[in-house]
Amino acid sequence: MSFEVLAPGMLALMQDSGRRGYQHIGVTTGGPMDEFAFFWANRLLDNDLNAPQIEITFGGFSLLAHDDTSMAITGGDLGARLNNRDIRPWRTYRISRGDRLEFTAPVNGLRAYLAVRGGFKPAMKLGSCATVSREGLGGLHGNGAKLAKGDRIGFAKTDNLVDAALPDTEIPDYREPLRLGLLPGYQFRHFPPVQRMKFFSDDYEVTQNIDRMGYRLQGDAIHSDLDGIVSEGIAYGAIQVPSDGQPIVLMKDRQTIGGYPKIGCLSALDAGHLAQRGPGASVSFYLGDVAGAEAQRLLFNRRLRLGVSGD
């Protein structure tokens, strides 16, 4: 039971929810850039929420099905086509032997998630298949490589076909202006009030320098009263401010330590929304709090448990 990669595109990676418990030895978590889309892809198929998927960035990716299954596509609309027929994300589809699936180019968002019933079957390293190429970990063969032409991606046989879709009212529009809640950290107080005011009143632009390690933003420069800090552990979504005053949002493949002051951090769901924006997108921030972020996550987790039409 497998798919065959016909065209690898710019970047297609095997991902589960991430590699936990190894940051103290310098191994980062990896995992899906957009957790909202990743978990919904598995939920639509009634999979284990950690079941491995393919994260497709920018498109140009195509597969040939060698067996029957059900699949779900979520996240960005990358112009998906099934047997030359346009299909839309945020729903499940039946796949038959000989079907061809392709993702062409971004229409709305940057990253799509492809899940199959029961999950894909890649190699596991340190308890996860999450691909972190810099560390040579994860992926189909466990060596950190992105998917390549000719790869055969196995999945479990299943006769239980699934028909489900996320309601249109709950589907994100990645073209909308993005406003994110900053959770202030203990270095927040080292940014003088004028610098904080600039940060919260400015619109930042996503630059060309974005990848799975971090998103560099450009706007009104802000500065702390620290010359630097002793390198320390870094959380997912942390916003570093280097000497040029331009914020960097650290993403799933971030380094595990760093020495730049941090004005605060984004929640995982907010960082996922940012991960769907490309160069030129506008981003602004407001002062959030941990209680609000926790409530947002609890509501999301409850919605996942409730499921959708067709379950």
Rank of each mutant, 00 (worst) to 15 (best):
A145Q: 14
P106V: 00
G185N: 13
L178N: 08
A156I: 15
Y204N: 06
D203M: 12
K125H: 03
Y260I: 02
Y204Q: 07
A7P: 00
L182P: 00
D151G: 11
S133M: 13
P8I: 02
L49P: 03
T104D: 10
A130V: 02
N108V: 01
G278H: 06
S2G: 03
R111M: 01
G136L: 09
R20I: 09
R85G: 12
G245R: 05
A293K: 11
R111N: 00
P193E: 14
Q246Y: 08
Y236I: 12
R302Y: 15
F191I: 05
G21I: 05
G30Q: 02
D202V: 06
L287I: 12
Q255V: 04
P193G: 10
R91A: 10
L166K: 14
Y113I: 00
D151I: 01
D311Q: 14
G31A: 05
A295I: 14
I87E: 08
L180F: 11
F39K: 11
M197C: 06
L82H: 06
G264V: 04
P8M: 07
F3P: 00
A268N: 10
G272E: 05
A291H: 15
D86M: 11
L63V: 06
F3K: 05
P193R: 14
L64M: 08
A156L: 13
D77Y: 09
Y236A: 06
S201T: 15
G109D: 04
M14W: 00
Y174A: 08
R94Y: 10
G59S: 02
Q218F: 09
D163M: 12
D270V: 03
G30N: 04
D159E: 10
G139H: 01
L126W: 09
G280Q: 13
L269Y: 07
D159W: 04
L140Q: 10
D211Q: 03
R20D: 13
G258L: 06
Q296V: 08
G228M: 13
K157M: 12
L183T: 07
D225H: 10
L126H: 09
T169Y: 13
S224W: 01
I234M: 14
Q15T: 03
I171D: 08
K157Y: 12
V249H: 08
E294P: 04
E102P: 01
Y204V: 03
A115D: 06
S224Q: 07
G79W: 01
Q240S: 06
S2N: 10
S309W: 13
L299H: 15
F300Q: 09
V249R: 10
G138H: 01
D34F: 01
D159L: 11
R179V: 13
A238R: 04
S231H: 04
L63Y: 05
V241Q: 08
V308N: 15
Y215C: 09
L178Q: 09
N84T: 04
A130M: 03
L274R: 07
S224C: 04
F199T: 06
R277G: 00
F38A: 05
P242A: 11
Q276V: 00
V194H: 15
L250R: 05
T207L: 04
P106Y: 07
R88L: 07
R254G: 02
I54W: 04
S96Q: 12
G98H: 10
A130G: 10
G60D: 00
D16V: 00
A291E: 14
D173C: 10
L147F: 06
A115Q: 05
D67C: 09
D151M: 02
G219K: 08
Q15Y: 02
E55M: 03
A80C: 07
E55Q: 11
L13C: 11
